[in-house]
């Protein structure tokens, strides 16, 4: 790289005398560290993930254990978030719910991102495929979502339940259902961005030196459209968590004794006046997760954008 021969400005203490090989990842990381919101977001998000994964080992109460005699309790040492109307420990439920909600959110987001980005890039880059793929996107956008979900769940629920058991089966089904019904916005945005990027001179330059199309897409187009992808990814997690809770509420999601953040919220609404912690904690967990992911996405977008990076 040409940077290696440029002498660092005087008085720059960090400038090494012998420059090391720079990688994209290191550049991104250096830039990301300077985005304060992104760093705070990452710390919060990693803390939530850490708690959700290791919390149940520290707080050993079974989230499903019932104790009707000690119901609707407030905050105490034994129950840091109180108990619900059947005496289940709220903290244990929030931790267990987080495992489900986060894994549903992240997996569904990845699936919809993969679909949306692939379709968006292909439609934007290859003119011949643009029409058919965008009409397909329109078709999916026009599908009435709820009846579609009802049909899919009706057709496959018993099959998956028999093969993978009630919880894994429903997990796969929900992730799949959310994934294939939420990729359209991403595809649209990515296609728009690809259309504008592919007309720029550096793409023409790459073409003129005979770069293969696959390489142009991965090396030149994708990094330049990463920012909209990151934004839809962060929004996608939030949507997936919320869609999952709506499905559970309709009775199409996980069994009612299987906690997720959305379900804890719904169940708690009636008890809000008796025991506000029933809605505060799961609500806070959802908001914090979504907010922190949004900030991480913001930071990543800045760090990944070659035009901003290095400024």
């Amino acid at each position: 790289m040409s940077d290696a021969v440029i002498k660092p400005p005087h008085g720059s203490p960090s400038a090494p005398l012998v420059t090391k090989q720079r990688t994209l990842a290191a550049d991104v990381w250096r830039q990301f560290r300077q985005h304060r919101g992104g760093v705070v977001g990452a710390i919060v998000f990693l803390t939530i993930v850490f708690l959700v994964i290791f919390g149940p080992y520290l707080h050993g109460i079974n989230p499903a254990a019932l104790d009707v005699r000690s119901r609707n309790l407030g905050i105490s040492f034994a129950h840091p978030m109180g108990t619900d109307n059947l005496g289940r420990d709220m903290f244990a439920q929030v931790l267990a719910g987080g495992r489900t909600s986060l894994s549903v959110g992240i997996t569904a987001m990845m699936l919809s991102l993969l679909l949306g980005t692939t379709i968006g890039v292909v439609a934007g880059y290859f003119k011949r495929l643009d029409g058919p793929l965008m009409r397909l996107t329109d078709l999916f956008l026009a599908l009435p979502l709820l009846p579609l979900l009802l049909v899919i769940i009706m057709l496959f629920r018993d099959v998956l339940r028999a093969r993978f058991g009630p919880e894994t089966g429903i997990f796969l089904l929900i992730v799949f259902v959310i994934g294939i019904t939420s990729w359209m916005q991403t595809a649209r945005i990515v296609r728009g961005a690809v259309l504008s990027v592919k007309e720029q001179e550096f793409v023409l330059a790459a073409k003129s030196i005979g770069t293969r199309e696959r390489r142009i897409v991965t090396r030149h187009i994708l990094p330049n459209v990463l920012s909209p992808i990151m934004v839809s990814a962060t929004l996608g997690i939030a949507t997936a968590i919320i869609t999952e809770s709506a499905l559970s509420f309709l009775g199409l999601g996980f069994p009612s004794d299987f906690p997720t953040w959305g379900r804890l919220l719904y169940d708690g609404v009636n008890f809000m006046t008796i025991n506000p912690s029933r809605v505060i904690w799961p609500g806070l967990a959802i908001s914090l997760t979504v907010l922190s992911i949004n900030y991480v996405g913001d930071g990543l977008r800045d760090a990944l954008d070659p035009r901003i990076r290095g400024r």
């Binding site: 499903a64 019932l66 009707v68 059947l86 009630p166 009775g251 069994p255 009612s256 004794d257 169940d267």
Partner: peptide, 22 residues
């Protein structure tokens, strides 16, 4: 759903597994 959760717990104690659906 609360009744379901309680009954599931009671049946668990006699060695019966329950899956809830609403």
């Amino acid at each position: 759903q609360a009744t379901q959760a309680l009954v599931k717990d009671m049946w668990q104690q006699i060695g019966i597994e329950t899956e809830l659906r609403n």
